[in-house]
Design a protein around this nucleic acid. Structure first.
Length: 463
RNA sequence: UCCGCGGUAGCUCAGCGGUAGAGCAGCCGGCUGUUAACCGGCGGGUCCAAGGUUCGAAUCCUUGCCGCGGAGCCA
């Protein structure tokens, strides 16, 4: 007897097959007509398959009538067209085996709505719900699209280190990695003696693979990284995690305009794939999570991304007649209220802002000839705001070193990075995309803690 | 980290100085090719913690812990 998934069992083409199906009971409804209805889900799709279990089965009274939400079962039977509304097919069971029950007095997932806040406290069980199953499947599809897109465009997937010994990857608080005994730290002249630590110097979890990514781009041409990233910031918001996944493409011979074109094609590919391949899950999100999801995604999919220099954006904001909580002035960083106004109200389409004041941006971004701006870009989308940040990189050694000194960094500590300019330097560009923010955008979910399986945030590393 | 709101039954909440409540789900019974099924009944609580005010505190005050929303940082 062939095993079958719920996804396949729901298809009309499966009618007539004798199958073995295994999964978890969502609900049971008994009929005095001499049978029970079981709704079975196995995570293969959004929907359940309805099983009709007749009272003539030996274990009908002993097991089947006691099946509860969450119980695991194996079912043998024949797939038939369903005579009632609500489903195309159903399985007429010839055998129902109870694999494991789930005591309804203690099993927290009962047949009722639960808040996401509560489900976060049972992160090991929440994937059994409709919403979290759908999030997991869409997250998978997004990851697959990312790999497909880059592979088709000739990119090489590069694994940059998770542990880094350079304490100079840029701003952002770092997690220390150490094997020193924190109760008895070795000290020399009052300072911790890191020469006795595992790596012989301080080490940290990575906040970005960009610098190492540049090394491989300056050899292989087009590369991307895709891995876990860590920020020890005490951020407690629906958009921040201490551990998240980031995609960072890096391309030799790409200028900023090439970079923007790639970012636009990349986002459109992800959204297009999700809509094409996750139709049932996306329909669920559109109906139950976010009524405006589809119009927002279609808007990003169909409209060309508008490209706007920072200086012109400041002019638009100044002339908008709006009063801002944070003042708009050339040289000030744009706040989320400004970014959202541009993409949601003024242009009503995705916007790529570029050429930011150099004082606002890190040393590695390429300086423009105007002496004031750098070739940075931020991609803003309606509903979410900034989703991608990137730049053309400074490829001129003398200017790069000058920028490091301006920002109080010692070029000696970055000597390997400077080597990329010292030997065979080329123009190159790249950007970073937060995976979880992309999942938020694609699903309409509101909290980033609900689009990663086991979220890590300040004060929370459960499970 | 700052500002605001909140922690009461398994879950979602009401009660805001005088003996602790509802809906949902759970259990029991009824009914039904059912489908967030429906109808009736039953059980269920250190009211987040520690101090304080009071004859009396879930309710008022203080502190702490935790959660949520907004801001900052950013992906």
């Amino acid at each position: 007897m062939n095993t079958i998934s719920v996804s396949d069992a729901r298809r009309v083409e499966s009618v007539g097959k004798s199958v073995l199906l295994r999964g978890w009971v969502r609900t049971r409804r008994d009929s005095k007509g001499g049978f029970s209805f079981l709704e079975i889900n196995d995570g293969s799709c959004q929907g359940n398959v309805q099983v009709v279990a007749p009272a003539t089965l030996d274990n009908y009274e002993s097991d089947i009538r006691k099946l509860v939400t969450g119980a695991s079962v194996a079912i043998e039977g024949e797939i038939k067209a369903s005579p009632a509304k609500g489903q195309a097919t159903e399985i007429h069971a010839t055998r129902v085996e109870l694999l494991g029950s789930a005591d309804p007095e203690t099993y927290p997932l009962q047949k009722k709505g639960h808040t996401f806040e509560f489900l976060r406290t049972i992160a090991h069980l929440r994937p059994r719900t409709n919403t979290f199953g759908a999030v997991a499947r869409v997250r998978h599809q997004i990851c697959k699209s990312i790999h497909d897109f880059f592979h088709e465009q000739g990119f090489v997937y590069v694994h940059t280190p998770v542990i880094t010994a350079s304490d100079c990857e840029g701003a952002g608080a770092l997690f220390h990695v150490t094997t020193l005994d924190l109760e008895k730290l070795p000290r020399t002249e009052g300072q911790v003696d890191y020469s006795r630590d595992f790596f012989g110097k301080p080490a940290y979890l990575t906040v970005s693979g960009q610098l190492q990514g540049e090394a491989y781009a300056c050899a292989l041409g087009r590369i991307y990284t895709f891995g876990p990233t860590f920020r020890a910031e005490n951020s407690n918001t629906p958009r921040h995690l201490a551990e998240f996944w980031m995609i960072e493409p890096e391309m030799a011979f790409f200028d900023l305009q090439d970079n923007m074109a790639l970012a636009e094609a990349f986002l459109k590919r992800i959204i297009g794939d999700v809509l094409a391949h996750c139709t049932e899950d996306m329909q669920f999100f559109a109906e139950r999570i976010d009524k405006e999801l589809m119009s927002r995604l279609n808007n990003v999919l169909e409209k060309p991304f508008l490209r706007l220099p920072y200086t012109e954006a400041v002019d638009i904001l100044l002339k908008s007649g709006k009063t801002w909580e944070f003042p708009v002035a050339w040289g000030n960083d744009l706040q989320s209220e400004h970014e959202r106004y541009l993409t949601e109200q003024h242009f009503k389409c995705p916007v790529i802002l570029y050429d930011y004041p150099r004082t606002l941006k890190p040393f590695y971004m390429r300086c423009n000839d105007d002496g004031k701006t750098v070739r940075a870009m931020d991609v803003l989308v309606p509903g979410v705001g900034e989703i991608i940040g990137g730049s053309q990189r400074e490829e001129r050694l003398d200017i790069l070193e000058g920028r490091m000194r301006d920002q109080g960094l010692d070029p000696e500590l970055y000597s390997w990075y400077c080597d990329l300019r010292r030997y065979g330097t080329v123009p190159h560009s790249g950007f970073g995309l937060g995976l979880e923010r992309t999942v938020l955008f694609c699903t309409g979910m509101a909290n980033i803690r609900d689009v990663i399986p086991f979220p890590r945030t300040p004060g929370n590393a459960e499970f």
